[in-house]
């Protein structure tokens, strides 16, 4: 299934371009509205899911454990939908976790700076000078969040196939470029790229279940074989391994499970 991810420094601009592109291509359009469904499925507030995507973990905000769990819920849900249909995806950070999937066209949109400043100034009822500072602060925060949460720099242009600045190029032209590019055979799914997506989806599905009970886990999946890395005290090792195997084993598509444990080191 062809996938386009659109990332923008402005929610409105990203949404408009994503919706119009999806309409022209007759693709499904996925945005933050799906967080309500994820929240309902797992019985958690939608706001917390949005915070897991946007905020840097801090002692006053979401803990790293909760953030990892919420992100696994979101990723598993989004990936499952992406596997079903041709999709345009925006504001769900998909470009940050679909890094190795070849059929994803990753587009970054930079808003017209003047328009963005005046919009933020009028929305927040602040001066343009303050709006400019606010935008700069938000950009820094995005960068820090992407680095801490996904270990990639969202502002790095090499993370995208194409970055377009709306200062000089109009939206219609950008949509034309995106729609033409995605029809190229390089952005059509092949068996290998679909397998990659399925593996990432399985990793996150397994992770979401295990993180409800244990933290400190790493999950790798390849064609139904799941490897879970975790830490355990020697006397609890067997019990922990068995319960992880039991939890993951119930999930559809999981064929083999391996659990690798390493010991906790005091003070580390």
């Amino acid at each position: 299934m062809s996938i386009i991810t659109i990332s923008s420094d402005s929610y409105e601009v990203g949404r408009k371009i994503a919706e119009k592109t999806a309409e022209i291509l007759n693709y499904k359009c996925l945005g933050r509205e799906i967080l309500a469904k994820v929240a309902e499925k797992h019985g958690i507030p939608e706001l917390k899911l949005a915070r897991a995507l946007d905020e840097v973990p801090s002692s006053f905000g979401l803990s790293a454990k909760l953030r990892d769990r919420y992100l696994a819920y979101i990723k598993a849900y989004v990936l499952n939908l992406l596997l079903e249909d041709n999709t345009v995806c925006y504001r769900l950070a998909a470009h940050l976790y679909l890094t190795n999937v070849s059929h994803v066209l990753k587009v970054g949109i930079i808003s017209n700076p003047k328009e963005l400043i005046s919009r933020i100034a009028s929305e927040k009822n602040i001066s343009e000078e303050k709006a400019e500072k606010f935008i700069k602060k938000r950009k820094d925060q995005c960068r820090r969040t992407s680095l801490q949460v996904f270990h990639v720099d969202e502002t790095d242009a090499s993370r995208y196939d194409l970055v377009v600045n709306l200062g000089q190029i109009d939206k219609k032209r950008i949509i034309d470029i995106i729609t033409e590019t995605v029809s190229d055979r390089k952005f059509k799914p092949v068996t290998y790229s679909l397998n990659c997506m399925e593996d990432i989806e399985m990793e996150n599905r397994v992770k979401a279940v295990i993180l409800e009970h244990f933290s400190d886990i790493k999950v790798h999946a390849k064609r139904g074989t799941v490897v879970v890395e975790t830490k355990a005290f020697k006397f609890k090792k067997e019990k922990k391994c068995n319960s992880i195997k039991e939890m993951a084993g119930k999930l559809p598509g999981v064929v083999n499970i391996e659990v690798h444990t390493s010991s906790y080191v005091s003070g580390n």
């Binding site: 970054g108 790095d156 242009a157 090499s158 194409l162 377009v164 600045n165 190029i169 470029i177 390089k186």
Partner: peptide, 23 residues
């Protein structure tokens, strides 16, 4: 490397030279 300095940043990785020329 700051992409806000440019109108278009094209990554010749999956995209080809011809794509870049078209854009």
């Amino acid at each position: 490397a700051d992409s806000s300095l440019y109108d278009l940043v094209i990554n010749i990785n999956k995209l080809t030279k011809d794509h870049a020329v078209d854009f």
